[in-house]
Each structure stands twice: as structure tokens, then as C-alpha cells.
Nucleic acid binder design. Structure first.
Length: 247
DNA sequence: AAGCCCAGCAACCGCATTCAT
DNA sequence: AATGAATGCGGTTGCTGGGCT
């Protein structure tokens, strides 16, 4: 099974897996364009990367999703939409492909039927505001909370950010930026606990969240404690938090 | 036993974004 | 600033195995 350029396609063999593993052990991840020639694999770089990320990586968890994982996945999906990599990032040992497949096979039907069941009600209230933040990099000299926590305005793409008939969300105001800054300012390195308030732009806080030190990758805690700074950095300020908390 | 259908999963493809020059 | 290469992501496809007729 070879592609037009003589590159192998289809299922990976044990030999190919071994070659890829040996290569990664020796050279580490990254520089995927160099992997096929160096590892002696007749595969394209994308295929190598995918195989490593989804199957060969050591800490990958296989098997059934646990109830808490599913619960977290549902909440995150409600919050983020189909941002599988971000969702997977909060599910230790799970890959974006795993999450996507699980959602499409197990949960999508439920979600659709729920939408149908509650369709009338939903139309009367408000449509779900799917959040689609596009993760963007921060300035290279920016360390978490060490420098100015600048969330780049371009981090969120308005064109695919909102699927609703609601009036356009207000442009980020100074307050909303402050919201983000406060959010991060409270989380100084070494602090055991930081807090941040959530409320309307000009309102009293409607909720106060707290986080412990970013949870270790191996644990799955309560959803909110689980979300560390890297998650919230990509978190939009016009989120309907109650929707998220009460799926 | 054979054929069909379907669910689950691995892999591919196209595109957007980032990075290097 | 412009451009091409590299990377990462999400949508989709297609293979495989199990259940049913």
C-alpha cells in the first residue's frame, strides 16, 4: 500500500512502530520532517507524528473512559466545542483522536438527542455559545505570570467563535482585560491557591473560583481545580459560566 | 456458513497557523 | 514585509471485528 510518492499508507506494522520508537528515544520528539529519513521509515512526517502521538507515546491511556473523564469531556465540549486537542489536554493520557472518536461514537448521539428534546426550551432561552478559542503562542519572553500576562487579542477568532443569533459580544473592554489580568495576577508562582472572580463586565463577581497548583498530569480532579493557567489563558471572557458549571 | 450491517478506531487529508529566512 | 516550510488541528474516510439474519 503505497501513495503516489512511494510513501507507505495504511496500518502500521510492528517493525515500523519499533523504528519510530527507537528514533524518538534517540532524538526526541519534534522535527517531524526529519523522522522518516532518519528513522528509515517509508512514511510521511504527518503519519509518523500521528502514530507517535496517538499510539506509541508512553503515557497514553487506553481502554474505557471512566465516568469522571466522560463528565469532564462533556463539560469541556460544551465549553470549547470541537477543540479536541484542548479537551484531550485536560484528560491525562488521552489523545485528541481518542477524545474525538469517543465523542463521535458515544456522546454525539446523546448530545443530538438532548438538543432535540430540549430544542423548544433552548430556542426560548438562548443558544449555546460554543467557545472556539484558537490557541496562540505568547511572546517568547513571557513566562507564566512572571511577565505581563498578555492575552493576544487575536487569540480568539470572532468568525468562528459564536454560532448563535445573539447580538455580537461586546468588544473586549478594559474591564475584560482586567478580568484576565486579575485572574492571572492572583496566581503568583509559589502561591498555593489563587482566586479569580467571574462576573459581568461591570458587575459584582458572580462566582469566585480557586485553583490549586496546576494539577499533575496523572490526576483527574474536580473540573475547575483541574484547569490550570494554560487552560484559562485561552479562556474567553464572555463565557456563560453557569452553562459550563451546570451542564 | 455466508452475507450484511454497524460501531469503533486508526489513519489520512486539507487547511490554518507559526516559524525561519 | 513577504514567502515558503514545518507543524498542529479538526473533519473525514476506510478498515476491522462482532452481531444479526
Amino acid at each position: 500500500m503505497e501513495g503516489s510518492l512511494g510513501v507507505r499508507k495504511g496500518a502500521w506494522t510492528v517493525e515500523e512502530d519499533t523504528l519510530l520508537k527507537l528514533y524518538i528515544e534517540k532524538y526526541g520528539e519534534g522535527k517531524w520532517h526529519q523522522v522518516p529519513p532518519r528513522a528509515g521509515l517509508n512514511r510521511c512526517r504527518k503519519s509518523c507524528r500521528l502514530r507517535w502521538l496517538n499510539y506509541l507515546k508512553p503515557n497514553i491511556k487506553r481502554g474505557e473512559f471512566k465516568a469522571d473523564e466522560v463528565d469532564l469531556m462533556i463539560r469541556l465540549h460544551k465549553l470549547l466545542g470541537n477543540r479536541w486537542s484542548m479537551i484531550a489536554g485536560r484528560l491525562p493520557g488521552r489523545t485528541a483522536n481518542d477524545v474525538k472518536n469517543y465523542w463521535n461514537t458515544h456522546l454525539r448521539k446523546n448530545a443530538i438527542s438532548r438538543i432535540k428534546d430540549g430544542g423548544e426550551k433552548a430556542q426560548q432561552t438562548s443558544k449555546v455559545n460554543i467557545i472556539k478559542p484558537r490557541p496562540r503562542t505568547f511572546a517568547k519572553n513571557l513566562t507564566w505570570f512572571g511577565g505581563k500576562p498578555t492575552i493576544m487579542a487575536a487569540s480568539f477568532q470572532p468568525k468562528d467563535n459564536v454560532i448563535s443569533d445573539l447580538p455580537p459580544a461586546p468588544l473586549p473592554s478594559e474591564n475584560s482585560v482586567k478580568w484576565g489580568e486579575n485572574l492571572f495576577d492572583d496566581k503568583e508562582a509559589g502561591d498555593e491557591i489563587g482566586t479569580y472572580d467571574v462576573g459581568g463586565l461591570n458587575e459584582e463577581p458572580i462566582a469566585t473560583f480557586r485553583w490549586a497548583e496546576a494539577a499533575p498530569a496523572e490526576t483527574v480532579g474536580t473540573p475547575l481545580d483541574e484547569f490550570g493557567p494554560s487552560f484559562w489563558a485561552e479562556f474567553p471572557s464572555n463565557l456563560d459560566v453557569w452553562d459550563f458549571l451546570d451542564p
